[in-house]
Design a protein around this nucleic acid. Structure first.
Lengths: 344, 344
DNA sequence: TTGAAAGCGCTAACAC
DNA sequence: GTGTTAGCGCTTTCAA
């Protein structure tokens, strides 16, 4: 852990002025000979420009943060990769910042990051408190919210209609012969939890809905472990559902496991749908029918909104909406006991 | 996106000097009245100390980075959570930095972060090039390496004996009646790939080994998708293995899926073991027997080593070793056709 | 206890 | 083209 060489060190070593050293390394208007000399000195001393000094002077850090509550959810990993691809191409470094579990932690993190640590922020909050919205509007760096068209004229945002997404799942299940649906949701006080709940209610309350809702459970969070626990309750109640709509893929994993514990086969006895269409979906056994919410697309869109705002701080706020799309796989395959419409 | 208030703004607003304002907010030796006045002004202006200015002066950022290649692997999520718990208690912010895919990207990232962005670094590299080692020794901030006892006297490190871990899996499979083992590994040029390969060779080459190695495949990376592709080759060759040792849990997911595609049941026809004992293992169907490498424990140990070195830069380098442990689950359950020793 | 001033490392006017 | 210098926002001597 040796000591750092500073720019004055390099300048002295090269026998030139501080300014010349700086210009030679980063700026413009230095002679080839100067560049050569300074570069040599820099290399020899193992010079690495100090990020803090540079940032203070340039008034930018060339860093972006992606703030996420649930870092264990593969959907955020995919989003991050998508964001990274876009901002990386512009020479910005992307850092992932886990927001604490409480709303206050999130607010503190955002404030802290915005106060000089990064040039911009993409945030995908699970819970959007008023204070968080206020904070996001007040911080002195651009922010893009993934999750809900948020005070649309005040903040750039990327969202998806996950309520409609749940509708796609319900529709698909009914169309493939399921008649006793249950909904496995995550916490209702979260943005996705609330939206998906609404979607389920709307879809199952619609005039054309030709099945029954036989149960519902709310998991403690959007993880597979919580999903398993909640789904056990689902399968312990009567009548047993022949289809479970899970609010995301991880909950669906829990649902599939609970079904098996209950002696039910997926999809013969019970169908399961997930949401987010994570990589996991294609690798589970059976593969999981899932509603894609365009994860990568949302990530890319968010990154672009952020870059645009960094370029043009005063441009009009925009809200990008990505449409959900059902991806049918094995977990909603053939029904074992023939469904009503399958019987002529 | 309003403008920032600076400390001079606060001082002026409070009608005191810059120095007094600073002392009142962070330092010591300010009168109660002064603190009161300055606090009020700060609140009113929505003052947030600028991280860069502060860092430049204090020569620290109060930030730590966890640099990880494969952010999609749940093992790193668990590690990060463990690190977070330790460093968070000390008021440090933990950021996750995805190292690019190439060795050069990793070196660049490390250098960049170390040049003023963070106070310390925990890194878990997939590939440890000489240049990376050199870089890690040269950077001016403390670093802890998770992965291999690395130039032990030059760098703090946390490691595990994953070779022995593979041995545990092999032992378990043979003890439960499997006789035709195959090894599904990740890239051999990675640290874990190389170690696990060695572990497999040693375990299957040992005098007491009472089974046969019938195949091996190397996945393109340590992901489930790559594992699936590689495992297909495994099951396409003859003789078909009755047990697959996968080098991590994600590869095991791929192996289980490939087995099913090949019409084989897990565990009746083929047993599968994973490694890392991620949360996934208990949720798959069947649940996955996996070798725990003490993920959280390694994370905590790394965090403590880092904190200790921040406190005492010159203390002697340490290397912590965490022992592997087999966690048996369904995927290595009863053999369908009775195994040799089961026949009296 | 408070204020004035130096300086962390860097870049960009500005002068030469 | 190169050097001198101011200053980004902050903390901490040092003097009063």
């Amino acid at each position: 852990m040796p000591h750092r060489a500073t720019l004055p060190d390099v300048a002295q070593h090269a026998g030139v002025s501080l300014a010349s050293a700086s210009r030679a390394l980063h700026g413009t208007g230095a002679s080839a000979a100067m560049v050569e000399r300074v570069r040599a000195a820099a290399t020899q001393l193992g010079y690495q420009p100090h990020a803090t000094g540079r940032s203070l002077r340039l008034r930018r850090t060339s860093q972006i943060a992606f703030a996420v509550a649930d870092i264990g959810n593969p959907v955020y990993v995919e989003m991050m990769t998508a964001i990274q691809a876009v901002v990386g191409a512009r020479g910005l470094r992307l850092l992932l910042a886990p927001t604490g579990s409480t709303s206050q932690d999130t607010v503190d993190l955002v404030r802290g990051l915005a106060a000089g640590s990064v040039d911009g922020l993409v945030i995908s909050p699970l819970r959007i408190s008023d204070e968080l919205v206020r904070t996001l509007r007040e911080i002195p760096v651009p922010v893009v919210v993934i999750g809900r068209p948020l005070v649309a004229d005040a903040l750039d945002s990327v969202s998806t209609d996950s309520a409609a997404g749940v509708g796609l799942a319900v529709e698909h299940l009914v169309a493939t012969g399921r008649r006793c649906l249950a909904f496995l949701n995550g916490p209702l006080d979260t943005t996705p939890g609330a939206a998906r709940r609404r979607g389920f209610d709307e879809a199952t309350g619609a005039p054309g809905f030709r099945a029954e809702v036989v149960g519902g459970a709310v998991a403690a969070d959007f993880t597979a472990a919580a999903g398993l626990e909640a789904a056990r309750r689902l399968f312990a109640s009567r009548p047993v559902p022949d289809a479970v709509v899970a609010a995301n893929d991880l909950l669906a994993v829990g649902a599939m496991r609970a079904a098996r514990e209950a002696g039910l086969r997926v999809p013969e006895d019970v169908a399961v749908t997930g949401m987010d269409d994570t990589d996991l979906a294609g690798l589970l056994d059976p593969t999981l029918t899932s509603v894609s919410l365009g994860t990568a697309e949302r990530g890319r869109a968010a990154a672009r909104l952020l870059l645009d705002r960094l370029d043009e701080p005063d441009r009009v706020r925009r809200s990008v909406l990505v449409a959900p799309r059902l991806v049918a796989r094995e977990s909603t395959g053939a029904v074992h006991r023939s469904a009503p419409e399958a019987a002529p």
